[in-house]
Amino acid sequence: MALRLLPRKAAWQGWRRPDDLKVPLHSTDVEDANRRFLLFGVLPLWVVPAVADWWMHRRTSIERTSGTKESVVHAVMMTEAGVPVVMGLVARVNPLVLSVMGGAALAHGATALYDVTLATGRREIRPVEQHIHSFLEVLPLTALAFTACLHADQVRSMFRGGAGSQDWRLVPKERPLSAGYLAALAGTVAGGVVLPYAEELRRCARARTARAGAEP
């Protein structure tokens, strides 16, 4: 099955639709409650354990221990988590998107295991950091589970091979999320994930350069 993108004109027309997705804030409907928890709970709160993990790396002087190699692994994990999140936010959830989400969740778990293996013996991994890791590892699976429940028809289609004409295409949502929500979430992720881990990688790279310069 070939993966195809819709023509740019069709994609642009999809983004121009004015009927942005509105999530009822007071509805007790199960679907509305699940969508609220996913959009306003799981995704924004992902930043909290991410910042806490960054702080634990800083406290244990990652730049003088496992260094750049571990910090690069952290960047890889952020990418593994970020790509499916962006797809789920801006594209219609179909078998292609669900497959990417599932594959990314598995890859993230494997990379997290490698990350701990890499750090063990090189720097102190405190019990509280291990507990933080448990949140970071389960959140991708939580997001995938809620997305799958909200799109059970697409899950069924995926397991049947996705024979529909748009099952393996990236297409814009019929009812896009509001620009305000996307901007707020992007700002939260940039301030709480991208900047701290970019600072960590820069600190590790500078420390490695300093060590190389001090060697005879």
Rank of each mutant, 00 (worst) to 15 (best):
E124N: 15
V116I: 10
R92W: 09
S71W: 04
V116F: 04
L96E: 00
P84G: 09
V116E: 02
P127D: 08
M78C: 06
A107P: 01
V97P: 03
V85E: 11
E129P: 05
V86G: 15
E80N: 15
H74R: 12
A119M: 02
M87H: 01
A110N: 12
R92P: 05
H74M: 11
P84L: 04
V90A: 10
M87S: 05
A107C: 07
V97S: 07
T117H: 14
M87K: 00
L106A: 07
A81G: 12
T65R: 09
S71E: 07
A107I: 02
T65I: 08
V76Q: 06
I125S: 03
A107T: 06
L106N: 03
M101S: 09
T79E: 14
T111F: 08
R92G: 06
V128Q: 15
I125M: 09
K69A: 14
E129F: 06
M101T: 04
L106T: 06
A107H: 02
L96D: 01
T111K: 10
A110E: 09
V85A: 13
A81P: 01
E80H: 15
L96P: 00
L106F: 05
E80V: 08
S66N: 06
L106K: 02
P127Y: 03
K69E: 12
A104G: 00
L113S: 15
Y114T: 07
T120D: 08
A110T: 08
V85G: 12
I125W: 04
R122T: 13
R92C: 05
T117N: 14
Q130A: 15
S99G: 10
E80L: 15
H74Q: 13
K69N: 11
V83K: 00
P84R: 02
V128C: 10
S66I: 05
D115I: 04
K69M: 13
M87D: 09
V83P: 00
E129T: 11
M78S: 06
V100H: 07
E70M: 13
A119W: 00
A119Q: 03
G82P: 00
I125N: 04
R92V: 07
T68R: 14
S66P: 03
V83H: 00
S66Q: 05
S66A: 13
M77E: 11
V86L: 13
A91Y: 12
G88K: 01
T117K: 15
E80C: 14
